[in-house]
Design a binder for these strands. Structure first.
Lengths: 363, 363
DNA sequence: TTGTACGCGTTATCAC
DNA sequence: GTGATAACGCGTACAA
């Protein structure tokens, strides 16, 4: 009762009202709120009581406006569903970012980019002072966002690593977090080599993704070190089951005639989904995965070890990557002069049953 | 040149500066900005030119403070990784929410709830005027958050449906979006009945989740309609592969002796992950899934159809649910007097090869 | 130690 | 039509 306005929005108290209640000035309340030292123990206690009694919460907006800092981190979700499917751990990433951000007193602001709007529009809109910095995912080979972000002098951190030949700019000049994709693909490929596979292929992600370039590098390096050529050994497509299936079929068509009916084929896939698609196609062709042929995935999604056969795969610490991204961004925001940092997390080859030494043909 | 402060934050223009540049008052600029009619075509054009020339973006914070509306929607991410794993479409949900929100001029603000903090603390923090409303996921059977949200009179929408016996309150009093879990479980169970399975089980999610209660209802209803008892037929655990595996093992132990070595068992699982775990355990016990026994999953994750056997499962339109949730929340925010709405999306049984008519034992 | 007064960037209510 | 000017809620010089 006594509520003047419709009580729907339950009028929240302001610092002025708290001040009045406590018989002090707003400045004093603000000091107490922010833990400043210049306030006597008695007044502090008095104010704290009032604050607690009324469950007062300072308005975040007003505080942001005054401080010129929102304590919001921005993340643009790629528009394409395809990308998200390709990234089964997207929720893990968000969780990692969000956890670290919250722990440091920041929130995470999300927006989707729509294909109709340029990245400039999207980012500009999110900006408008709503965010202290941005986390950029889904890094492209030639990513126009980089130049824009630099020009606007927005603190930002990349998930992924820009490719070196970025025109007129040092890679070292940006904050970025990535997993060791080159190493992951390298080890996966070596693994197949060591198993004795003769015909080794990479089913890669779309070539415009920076991550695809890195994985192909690891693949090529392993092959070349073994004195083999990677020419014509790389197929590319979406990170989906379907793509894995179809690319494996074209791969089989290409090898037909060459090898012994496909026996000896080894496939490194850029996602577990693709790997599963590959397994399907291989089985359809009458090949035994984990005996005649081998397949390695990427990501280690929850279902990878329940698959038949349990999938050998390259695990990435997505949650950690998210946390680190938030950490670096916050660091850049709070210490603008701190030099940018590049963090690379190791990947791990999880060996299960989809990769095995070749069965001897004389058995 | 001429930059006064360190050029790192590239001073953004204010409405006052635009006004000065255009030779008008801030009020006029504001009118142009917000498309008000009371401004002459000439001045409008003049102001628009200046705005475009300087790429001016009004400050979202100041605007929010003035309007007392942030255009932010809040979503609390459950702390437990377990929950997220159980919810493979979490990214889909976020995408749905975010897309609808952005389309309507809203942003999505994320925060994680940490187990140490009460929901009141978590939500209170998000409040602080940082959001206009909240989306609540992971609804519990007795969810303390409901009462709190009502008391604080925060606009909110539930993903999921509260259970009827919520003390002293009409279910109809809240906005909520859910998929038809009762119907989904019902149809999955009927499907198994129609295939001739004798020993039908539900591997459910944790009982504290509201969704588990609904799914059990559908399961029971189908069984009872068929004149069977569901007593002792429900096992519960996390939504993981491991839980599915282990619960199936205990289930097999219980049936041992009774049925013909397990033949005729039919399992409805509350997630595709659990279903895959169940398949593993059944196979280990020497049973042929899709012949001797059947398994139905829930969710239709991308790998479900690549699984061996391809998984029969109950599909939910997660993306749509996200969009609808955002729609309802925004509606509640913009029309506080509009009566709350309950939307239930149909679920769909996708029949694949993990469920089949029982093989005749005389074959 | 405490209080006054102004700035943060918009919107909106008045006058003119 | 247009322009001062008071909110919006908080932080913080500066003065006391």
């Amino acid at each position: 009762m006594g509520a003047r306005r419709a009580d729907r929005a339950r009028k929240r108290l302001t610092i002025a009202e708290i001040a009045a209640l406590a018989g002090v000035s707003t400045a004093t309340v603000s000091r107490v709120l922010n833990g400043k030292r210049d306030v006597s123990p008695e007044t502090r206690l008095k104010v704290q009581r009032i604050i607690a009694a009324h469950n007062y919460q300072p308005n975040a907006l007003a505080r942001s406006l005054s401080l010129r800092r929102t304590h919001n981190l921005g993340l643009i979700i790629p528009h394409t569903a395809e990308y998200l499917v390709s990234f089964p751990y997207f929720s893990e990433l968000i969780r990692g970012i969000s956890q670290r951000a919250n722990a440091a007193g920041y929130r995470l602001l999300l927006a989707t980019s729509s294909s109709e709007r340029s990245s400039e529009e999207t980012y500009g809109e999110v900006l408008r002072g709503a965010v202290d910095g941005l986390i950029v995912v889904d890094l492209k080979v030639q990513d126009e966002r980089l130049r824009w972000l630099r020009r606007e002098a927005v603190p930002f951190v990349l998930i992924g690593r820009p490719l070196e030949p970025e025109p007129s700019s040092e890679v070292a000049g940006v904050n970025c977090v990535d997993s060791d994709n080159v190493g992951g693909a390298y080890r996966a490929t070596r693994h197949l080599l060591e198993l004795g596979h003769e015909s080794i292929w990479l089913i890669n992600g779309p070539p415009e993704h920076a991550v695809s370039v890195y994985r192909e590098r690891g693949f090529r390096r392993a092959l070349e070190e073994a004195g083999r050529s990677a020419e014509g050994r790389v197929l590319a497509g979406p990170f989906t089951v379907e793509a894995g299936y179809e690319l494996t079929q074209t791969l089989l068509a290409r090898t037909r005639g060459r090898s012994r009916g496909g026996i000896g084929i080894g496939i490194v896939a850029a996602s577990d989904l693709q790997a599963c698609g590959a397994v399907l196609a291989l089985r359809e062709a009458g090949l035994r995965v984990g005996a005649d042929v081998s397949v390695v995935g990427f990501d280690d999604v929850p279902l990878a070890r329940a698959f038949d056969p349990p999938l050998t795969t390259v695990r990435q610490p997505i949650f950690e990557i998210g946390k680190e991204a938030a950490r670096l961004l916050i660091r850049q925001i709070e210490q603008p002069d701190a030099p940018p940092l590049q963090t690379v997390f190791p990947t791990e080859l999880i060996v299960r049953r989809s990769t095995r030494p070749l069965a001897h043909s004389d058995e």
